[in-house]
């Protein structure tokens, strides 16, 4: 049976901490663990997962209090995927009006692109996401109804995540239209960076050509801005 430990590195900012808490309320087969403060967090996460007898781990690694990376790993043998987390909206935001039972089992939607035989890294990511986000059948915490769907899309070399409540409309007229969806949140966008053969390391199986590290992005931006004032006065 799948069990997933969720934890973050020290120095996690509030937004990402909220995101982490949201994922915990969405995954009944998850275990929380305290923030890691270690020189070598990678080995430590595997150790924690082993101690909690978890088969997978979700690790939020925050750098410079701005950049957040999410690791998904099968423990202890691997493989693992590293994502850059972008465009986060947590469940606490008021724009998303959906709501559903806590710990009801989700339906998972994946774009057809994930099954592309020519892009095995997507199949790999799909399997990993399924392991983490699907609730095992007859889990002791599960609720007996199925009222929400986790949707994963692949656009712009990124994995987009949405969570919708499945709404059954009331009344005669509305019944004809069938179900509708209402977004519950959170929203996030995961840019795959690398896939490793082991847990948090090992041979690199995939390396995204479109990923540019936020450090480089910032440096490029600075370079662009260089001499901005001089141009203005000239």
């Amino acid at each position: 049976k799948e069990k997933c430990v969720i934890l973050s590195s020290r120095g996690v900012t509030s937004r990402y901490r909220h995101l982490m808490l949201d994922t915990m309320t969405l995954i009944p087969n998850s275990k929380k663990d305290s923030k890691l403060d270690s020189k070598n967090p990678k080995d430590a996460v595997v150790e924690v997962a082993d101690m909690k007898s978890c088969s997978s781990a979700m690790f939020f690694e925050c750098r410079k209090r701005t950049d957040c990376y999410m690791w998904l790993a099968k423990c202890p043998e691997g493989p693992s995927v590293k994502f850059h987390v972008e465009n986060v909206h947590t469940m606490a935001e008021l724009k998303l009006t959906g709501n559903h039972l806590k710990f009801s089992r989700p339906v998972l939607h994946f774009d057809a692109t994930f099954d592309d035989a020519e892009k095995p890294h997507l199949g790999h990511i799909k399997e990993m996401l399924t392991h983490v986000f699907a609730t095992p059948f007859r889990h002791h915490k599960q609720k007996p109804f199925i009222d929400h769907i986790f949707a994963f899309y692949y656009e712009d070399d990124r994995v987009w995540f949405r969570n919708y409540q499945i709404v059954h409309p009331e009344g005669k007229e509305v019944r004809a239209t069938g179900v509708t969806l209402s977004e519950t949140g959170p929203r996030l966008c995961l840019h795959p960076i690398k896939i490793f053969g082991g847990a948090f390391g090992g041979p690199t199986l995939y390396d995204s050509p479109t990923y540019v590290s936020p450090n480089v992005q910032r440096a490029e931006k600075k370079k662009e801005d260089m001499g901005k004032y001089a141009r203005k006065v000239a």
């Binding site: 099954d115 199949g123 399997e127 095992p136 199986l205």
Partner: peptide
Amino acid sequence: GLRASLDDFQWTKKAKWIDHMVVAGTK
């Protein structure tokens, strides 16, 4: 390597649908 690794750790292929409830989108 990716295919080999996937074969190594995947269980959804063998499992019943109710165990994971994954719906693949249509193209």
